[in-house]
Design a protein around this nucleic acid. Structure first.
Lengths: 200, 200
DNA sequence: CCTTTTACTTGACACTGTGTAAATTGACAG
DNA sequence: CTGTCAATTTACACAGTGTCAAGTAAAAGG
């Protein structure tokens, strides 16, 4: 039956998720995940041909479980450009900690593995699209800072909201998550728009 | 003789520099560097016990050759807070591309090697100090954005000027170096100060 | 009841890259 | 010609990913 197969597959994904969440990225080996899932290391390769495949599948698995699409859809629903920017930053910024374990592993793998690099690039492209849409909404409302082309505004917002920046502020600098989200909202407004402070 | 030894050491550092500058970080192996330096792979280990040691030594080697300290000293010399911020961003921002090869290798190595992680953390701490000083100069002139503690302003500036952000804007987004520096100046002013646009 | 298929296990192995240990070379001193 | 010492090379150990072949247990299906 395929349900049995799916069960094991899911067990692997859950095991990977757990391990990546606790102990960081590249430290988690295929064998660790197998052991946590209660199967042999080789059995993992029956379901996921390479480490990169397993990591990307885990990322999607988390997406499904956490309902990213729904959350981001909510930000798309916002009417005005300002609200939309805030909602997008809120949704994405609060999503980062939930995928951070896999994200770290994927970024590390991307350094040496082209497949992992592409998988990560895809996710970053999706984020960039969200930024592009938010910037377009700002422009439509005439809120975009003068002299700042939408393309560059998108690039800036995309960079501001990168996982690495979250790591640096929340991880290295020790910021609480709430402050991170608030600061990203303020910084985005100040650097991209003609708006005042966001509502607290 | 020690002059001979030093020669070999320097040849290794130059070889590492060259290779890291062209082909990115983790792709450059100890053997590649050895070959480029005209010695055997193992001979490299006589001068640098580990990969992390070689990478950090290469970074310092570049620092010396390019005169980072002098350049950053120039930014410290700026009188007003605004000029100082601009000068600092200018100096650091234009330094990033010159160390980028080693930086990439060091960041990648940091994922799995604690020694490399510490070496990289040291460099980032130095950058953070520069940011701290620039923020202090802003505060002294009363230019710091209201409601923004110096500590947080430092963290934000530090994150804004990270090597990863440079990579993303100049590398992934394809920005020319000049635009990067200009955008960092503008963004820093907008998000941290009460100042208007920087002079073009 | 027997056969085939499915999902997994076991164990060995190839490959890549770092780092270590032992053997070798070569110059120079007595 | 021999001893010594340092620089260097050859050979090896180790970790982790991914491959391969053979075996096993149980469910599916005639």
């Amino acid at each position: 039956m395929s349900s049995n197969k799916t069960d094991t597959r899911t067990r692997i994904l859950d095991a990977a998720w757990n391990l990546l969440e606790s102990s960081g990225g590249p430290a988690v080996r295929m064998g660790d995940i197998a052991k946590a899932a209660g199967i042999s290391r080789q059995a993992v390769y029956l379901h996921f041909p390479t480490r990169a495949d397993l990591l990307t599948a885990t990322a999607r698995h988390i997406d499904d479980a956490k309902g990213v699409d729904d959350r981001l859809a909510a930000s798309r629903a916002a009417t005005g450009g300002a609200e939309r920017l805030d909602a997008f930053i809120e949704a994405w910024g609060n999503y980062i900690p939930e995928i951070h374990g896999v994200a770290r592993a994927l970024m590390a793998a991307a350094d040496s593995d082209p497949a992992a690099a592409e998988a990560w690039a895809d996710r970053m492209a999706a984020l960039r699209q969200g930024c592009e849409a938010a910037v377009a909404a700002l422009k439509k409302d005439g809120l975009l800072a003068p002299g700042l082309p939408p393309r560059q505004a998108t690039d800036l917002l995309w960079t501001l909201l990168s996982v690495r920046n979250w790591e640096q502020l929340v991880g290295d600098a020790g910021w609480p998550q709430k402050r991170y989200v608030a600061a990203m909202k303020t910084t985005a407004r100040r650097s991209l728009t003609t708006l005042a402070e966001p509502p607290t």
